[in-house]
């Protein structure tokens, strides 16, 4: 994103969908992610340990999901937006190696006085809806 446009509250209406992001979960991506976000819990990069928790393979950690929701909002709203809140974020199904996941979101409500927008976001994959999260973002004006 270079010299990106920032959304203003006047650009947004309830029901607007955020451009979705599709991303494949590979072990390499999870290993890079663990190294970068410092969540080295074994189930996120070790298939043997992951399977003892009932997961089919190593699976994405919470910080990856948080970060991807932040990317979903940033890609949509632009550089001048301020992310105020993410959550409650609920993990429903594992996002495991081999899955291709899609991050999606929709505008639920907006406040013209504070220039804030409430979003409902979720992740889906071949397994169904895997994560849900709400968020509040303050737009440029």
């Amino acid at each position: 994103m270079s010299a990106a446009h920032s959304l203003s509250i006047a650009d947004v209406v309830i029901g607007d969908e955020l451009p979705s992001i599709e991303i494949p979960i590979t072990l390499q991506r999870l290993v890079m992610e663990a190294g970068a976000n410092r969540d080295f819990s074994l189930m996120h990069h070790d298939v043997g340990v992951a399977q003892t928790t009932g997961a089919p393979d190593a699976f994405a950690n919470t910080y990856f999901l948080m970060g991807m929701f932040e990317r979903l909002m940033r890609d949509w709203a632009g550089p001048k937006a301020r992310i105020r809140k993410i959550g409650p974020l609920r993990m429903l199904i594992f996002n495991a190696v081999g899955d291709t996941v899609r991050f999606r979101g929709v505008v639920e409500s907006l406040d013209n006085n504070t220039c804030t927008v409430s979003l409902a976001m979720w992740v889906d994959s071949e397994r169904g809806q895997t994560v849900t999260a709400n968020a509040v973002i303050e737009l440029a004006g």
Binding site: S2, L30, M32
Partner: peptide, 18 residues
Amino acid sequence: RWLEPKEFAADIHTDVNA
């Protein structure tokens, strides 16, 4: 390194002028 595995490209995190 945090941006990389998310394929997250936003200049405010990498470019001081942005």
